[in-house]
Write a protein that binds this DNA or RNA. Structure first.
Lengths: 143, 143
DNA sequence: TCAAATTAAATTGTGTACAATATAATTTCA
DNA sequence: TGAAATTATATTGTACACAATTTAATTTGA
């Protein structure tokens, strides 16, 4: 790398651009479900395990309440989840799926395969990308 | 990958999270220059070659006028660049650096090295990440 | 035990992203 | 040549991101 200040020599720019590109490829599939990409991520966590506190969602997604609170309110307004303060600790808000939120899972199940197809990446490329990104994310993640 | 709908098995999530993580690491250095990360990217392009039309910036950064116009107005308000319609074609806005915008280059020159340090990634990891990301970005980028 | 510290969410404010639309200038072509 | 199509940018509206602050509940420790 000659001049580190040239855009083409930066590491971060292609990462930032590729992240947006991949999210773009999700869009047509998520539009069918009337979801944004971050909303889809929240639902994926809840499909896996329920309920989750706002804090737990934030830790898994590396997002804070400033991002999550309005996002969760929008999902609540769509009837996909409920927000309920815990009786034992009124500071904590627990997020649970509604029937509609649960039901959306089967429709979402097809997305990963469709996405692979749409992006035209090979399995090998995907695996290579995931390995290095996971490794660096583990190194870098905010404790 | 067992169940593609689990967050940990997604390719896109770690990419999205790592992109935000790396930008977080830039923040303290960019704060000193009173710049955001996308503003820094615009300046980098202009340091390399000047002037650039809004369209050219958008092609290089994969951003549209809805993002760039207000961003460029903020950089103009800070006195770092000028926005001027071309006489030959009044539709086109040309972006040029001011003295202050040019002068910021030397202060920005130190950032890439500082960032490498701050993130604690090895050169080999960076190179590996950059290779696969560049390859996939080239495949995927919006024509 | 009760004031201070801590914690969890929510709120506020700024700055992207991006779809959709609008506006104005330039090109095209019947 | 002049109406229709195209192009470049701007605007509008929605939804993140995230820093900083606020609020309310809980925990801690002198």
């Amino acid at each position: 790398m000659e001049n580190p200040l040239l855009l083409k020599n930066q590491i971060c720019f292609p990462l930032y651009a590729l992240s947006r590109e991949v999210i773009q490829h999700y869009r047509p599939f998520l539009d069918e479900l009337d979801l944004t990409y971050p909303q889809y991520l929240v639902l994926m966590i809840l499909w896996e395990s329920q309920p989750q506190t706002v804090n737990q969602l934030g830790e898994k997604l590396l997002l804070d309440s400033g991002t999550l609170t309005p996002l969760l309110k929008r999902l609540e307004a769509k009837g996909l989840l409920t927000r309920k303060r815990k009786a034992e600790d009124e500071r904590v808000v627990e997020i649970s799926l509604t029937e509609a939120g649960q039901a959306m899972r089967s429709r979402a199940e097809e997305i990963p395969a469709k996405l692979m197809d749409a992006m035209g990446f090979t399995v090998e490329e995907m695996v290579e990308l995931k390995q290095i990104v996971d490794k660096l994310l583990a190194k870098s993640s905010r404790s």
